[in-house]
């Protein structure tokens, strides 16, 4: 039999990139770092109780009374478990990563929807991004950006972007052909077709993608505690490595609460828009 390792070639590529583009990576690192810490500072500047009330009000406005009550109680429980700062750090990292993933992913999805060649190229890349075990992203992220929040954010962006691209693409392609024809038959420019017809009709699907991206971002942010991204993930990690079952359970519950709040709010966003 024969052996064929493609790992060394990939290593060589990563080495070459780190050697030649360290300046670029440094710049990205600095920008991301200031963004994430900025968000953290805002979230941790306000007293937890005031912030919880604000979150609950936002939840009420978007998702209704039930979700608001859950937000209030859930966050109070987190405060009670003394996990509030970690939770806000995780939230900051999720928000920053998901935002970047969406800013890149949605336009990419629009492009793919309007161009079959782009779609053909993007599709296998997305498959690759989604099926590659999440931990594997951590390795090059660490090599490029050292340890800490930034490589965590980069790995999270890559891991959470596919649904935004996919569902934007799908949403636009699902707009019925005759509706597109109708828009064209009145002489719409491609831009008018996109903004007045395709995007509004695709909005519920795109928002489903936004929801998925945020949920994936949360799960990845927790995992990236392994490379020192901090937040709730590191508490979970502590629970595992030091066999502190209680701490592991509490931080796990905190992740679940945060996940459910984010999920319900973003889902409601899609629901109201589609009406």
């Amino acid at each position: 039999m024969f052996t064929l390792h493609i790992g060394p070639a990939f290593e060589a590529l990563i080495d070459w990139l780190t050697d030649n583009f360290s300046g670029v990576f440094d710049l990205i690192r600095k920008v991301l770092m200031s963004g994430i810490t900025g968000l953290e500072d805002i979230l941790l500047f306000l007293p937890s109780l005031i912030l919880i009330v604000i979150f609950a009000l936002v939840a009420w406005k978007i998702a209704g009374r039930g979700v608001a009550a859950f937000t209030l109680l859930g966050f109070l429980l987190i405060v009670g478990m003394e996990l509030w700062p970690q939770t806000m750090k995780t939230l900051a990292l999720v928000m920053a990563s998901a935002l970047i993933a969406l800013v890149i992913g949605i336009p990419l999805g629009i492009w793919a929807a309007r161009n079959d060649m782009v779609e053909k190229f993007v599709r296998p890349v997305l498959d690759f991004m989604q099926t590659m075990p999440a931990f594997v992203y951590l390795i090059p992220a660490v090599l490029f950006f050292k340890l800490g929040k930034v490589p965590g954010a980069v790995a999270t962006v890559i891991f959470s972007m596919p649904p935004a691209v996919r569902l934007t693409n799908l949403g636009i392609r699902q707009v019925p052909e005759d509706v597109v024809e109708a828009a064209k038959s009145f002489g719409s420019t491609p831009r008018q077709l996109l903004y007045k017809v395709q995007l509004p009709i695709a909005t519920p699907t795109i928002l489903a993608g936004v929801n998925q991206t945020i949920m994936l971002a949360l799960s990845m942010v927790v995992i990236s505690a392994m490379i020192g991204a901090g937040g709730l993930g590191s508490e979970v990690l502590k629970g595992i490595t030091q066999l502190k079952i209680g701490l592991g359970f509490e931080s796990g519950i905190a992740v679940v609460i945060l996940a459910m709040i984010l999920d319900r709010i973003t889902q409601a966003l899609g629901g109201t828009k589609s009406k």
Binding site: P176, D178, V179, E181, A183, S185, G187, S188, P200, I201
Partner: peptide, 22 residues
């Protein structure tokens, strides 16, 4: 010119109505 002709000269009615649902 094509866009102008579609805008001013002709309009189309579709089998399945093709209204803008939003």
């Amino acid at each position: 010119e094509l866009l102008r002709m579609r805008q001013k000269k002709m309009a189309m009615v579709f089998q399945r109505f093709a209204l803008f649902p939003h």
